[in-house]
Deep mutational scan, measured.
Amino acid sequence: NITNLCPFDEVFNATRFASVYAWNRKRISNCVADYSVLYNLAPFFTFKCYGVSPTKLNDLCFTNVYADSFVIRGDEVRQIAPGQTGNIADYNYKLPDDFTGCVIAWNSNKLDSKVSGNYNYLYRLFRKSNLKPFERDISTEIYQAGNKPCNGVAGFNCYFPLRSYSFRPTYGVGHQPYRVVVLSFELLHAPATVCGPKKST
């Protein structure tokens, strides 16, 4: 009989979030998941669920729940959905087409922007091929755009693959930082360890 609440607040209220290319994953298990708490945590810009209804979450049980978190800019949030393409979905964080879970995003301009520009958040701009779903690539190998090998040196047709967002508070919403948490629900042929409040007794 599990009584402890799932530590969603640790994920959502973390002081620092990860850069999207090096997104963070927390496995959540053996706890009571009260998803209604999430609705009250922040004024969400996005709370979209796929393959599951957000209002039914509190009635369900899962084997595992994974919470992935990272920062992107406002106009990239739409890429965090099944079947999307674009720089983020292709080279940084890719959801599977049959994704079961929820994408939660909110504006973090007050936390993640600086007047002089916050350069701490990076994204991958160049990659030889698209990522597979939930693949994480943290390599910093020089990207070869031409025929000549780069031998690890940046220059003509040889690019450092990561680029930094420079978040400034005066930017338009599309270029402001957004914190994203992706909850993916895993149903294996194994005992369910993460249940809503109704199912945990």
Rank of each mutant, 00 (worst) to 15 (best):
N13Y: 10
T63G: 02
R27E: 04
V153L: 09
F156D: 09
R136K: 09
V65G: 03
T100K: 03
N151A: 13
S129V: 03
P54F: 03
D9K: 03
V173H: 00
L5Y: 04
R16V: 02
R27M: 08
F47S: 12
R78T: 09
G117S: 15
V32C: 12
T85R: 06
T85A: 09
N109F: 15
E141V: 11
V173M: 00
T85V: 01
P54S: 02
Y91H: 14
S29P: 14
S36H: 06
Q144R: 12
E141G: 12
K110R: 09
F62C: 08
T63R: 11
Y66I: 00
D98Q: 12
A145E: 06
F126V: 09
K199H: 03
S129A: 01
E186H: 05
S200W: 05
F160L: 08
L95V: 07
F12L: 14
G196P: 05
T63A: 11
N151Q: 02
Y119H: 01
Y178H: 03
A190T: 02
V173S: 04
Y35M: 06
P169S: 15
K148G: 13
K148T: 06
Q84K: 08
T63S: 01
F45N: 04
R16K: 05
K199G: 05
S166P: 15
N13H: 07
L183I: 12
T201G: 13
G117Q: 15
N1D: 07
F134L: 14
F12I: 12
N147S: 02
N147V: 03
A42T: 05
L41K: 11
R78P: 04
Q144D: 14
L38V: 03
T193A: 03
T46A: 11
Y39N: 06
T85S: 00
V194E: 10
P54Y: 12
P54L: 00
Y159H: 01
T55F: 08
T140N: 00
Q144E: 11
N130P: 07
N64S: 04
N58Q: 06
N87V: 00
R78Y: 07
L188V: 01
E10V: 14
T63V: 06
A145Q: 07
T63K: 01
T100L: 09
T15D: 06
V153I: 01
S29Q: 03
V173Q: 07
E10S: 04
K56M: 08
L5P: 00
L41E: 09
P197W: 04
P197K: 10
S53E: 02
N13L: 10
D97I: 13
R78S: 00
T63C: 14
Y35A: 05
S129G: 07
L122Q: 01
S53R: 09
V115T: 15
S19D: 15
E76D: 14
G174M: 02
A154W: 14
S200G: 05
I2P: 07
E186G: 11
T193Y: 14
T170M: 14
T3D: 02
D90N: 02
N64C: 09
L41H: 01
N4R: 12
S129P: 08
T3K: 06
Y35F: 11
D75A: 07
K114G: 15
S116H: 14
P197R: 02
A190N: 13
Y123S: 14
A192L: 07
P149E: 08
R78N: 01
N130I: 01
S113T: 13
T63I: 12
G196L: 12
E141D: 00
S200T: 05
A18P: 06
N151M: 05
D97L: 11
W106Y: 14
G152S: 13
L5T: 04
V115D: 15
F185Y: 02
N87C: 04
S29T: 02
Y143L: 14
T15Q: 06
F47M: 12
K199Q: 08
P149Y: 14
T100C: 00
K110H: 04
A145C: 10
T46F: 11
F134Y: 03
P197E: 05
V115G: 15
V37E: 09
S166H: 04
K148C: 07
P191G: 03
V194L: 02
S53A: 10
L122W: 03
L188D: 07
R27Y: 09
Q144P: 14
Y119W: 10
L41G: 01
K128P: 12
F160A: 06
A67I: 08
K128I: 13
K199C: 04
Y119Q: 07
A33I: 06
K56E: 09
L187N: 00
V153F: 01
S200E: 02
A42Q: 06
T140A: 09
P169Q: 15
V173D: 03
N130L: 11
T193I: 07
S166I: 12
F160W: 11
P191C: 13
G117D: 15
T55K: 03
V153H: 06
S139N: 12
T15H: 08
A190P: 01
N24T: 01
F47V: 00
V115E: 15
V153E: 03
Y178F: 01
N151F: 11
N147P: 14
L41R: 00
L111T: 15
K110I: 14
E141H: 07
L41V: 03
Q84A: 08
F62G: 13
K198Q: 05
P191N: 08
K110V: 12
N147L: 04
K114V: 15
S116F: 15
A22R: 11
Y143V: 08
L122N: 00
K56G: 05
G83A: 12
N4C: 13
I2W: 09
R27D: 11
P169K: 15
N4V: 06
L125S: 12
G83M: 09
G83Q: 10
N109L: 14
D90R: 11
K199F: 03
V194K: 05
N120M: 04
S116I: 15
L187F: 10
Y119E: 11
K114A: 15
T55G: 03
R78I: 07
N109W: 15
N118P: 15
N24Q: 13
K148Y: 01
A42V: 06
A154P: 00
V194S: 04
K128G: 06
K199A: 01
S53M: 00
T170L: 15
S29M: 11
P54I: 08
G155N: 12
N1H: 02
Q84G: 04
N24H: 08
P149L: 06
Y91F: 06
N109D: 13
D97V: 06
V194Q: 08
K128D: 05
A105V: 14
V37K: 13
R78V: 06
A33T: 07
S166A: 05
A190D: 05
Y119N: 05
V32A: 14
T63H: 05
G174H: 02
N130D: 12
G196A: 09
N13F: 10
E141T: 10
Q79E: 13
K110Y: 11
V103I: 14
T15K: 01
K114C: 15
T193D: 02
R78A: 14
S164E: 11
R168M: 09
T100R: 01
L111I: 04
N87L: 01
P177A: 14
F47W: 02
V173R: 07
L60E: 06
N120D: 11
L41C: 03
Y35V: 05
D98H: 12
A42M: 02
T63Q: 13
Q144A: 10
N1T: 05
P54K: 09
H189Q: 03
P133A: 07
I2S: 06
G196T: 01
I142P: 13
D9M: 09
K94R: 10
H189M: 06
F17W: 10
V194F: 07
T193L: 02
G196C: 10
T140R: 14
L122A: 05
P43H: 08
N64M: 04
L188P: 01
K148W: 01
V32M: 03
T140E: 02
L60S: 05
S139K: 14
A42E: 05
S29G: 10
F126K: 11
A18N: 04
N109R: 13
F156K: 03
N24S: 08
P149D: 03
T3P: 04
K199D: 01
T100M: 11
K48E: 05
Q84S: 04
S53L: 12
N87H: 12
T55P: 11
P7R: 00
V52L: 13
A190Y: 01
N58P: 00
T46S: 04
K26I: 11
K128Y: 07
L122C: 10
Y39I: 06
F134N: 13
S139R: 12
R163D: 14
I138Q: 12
S166K: 12
T193M: 01
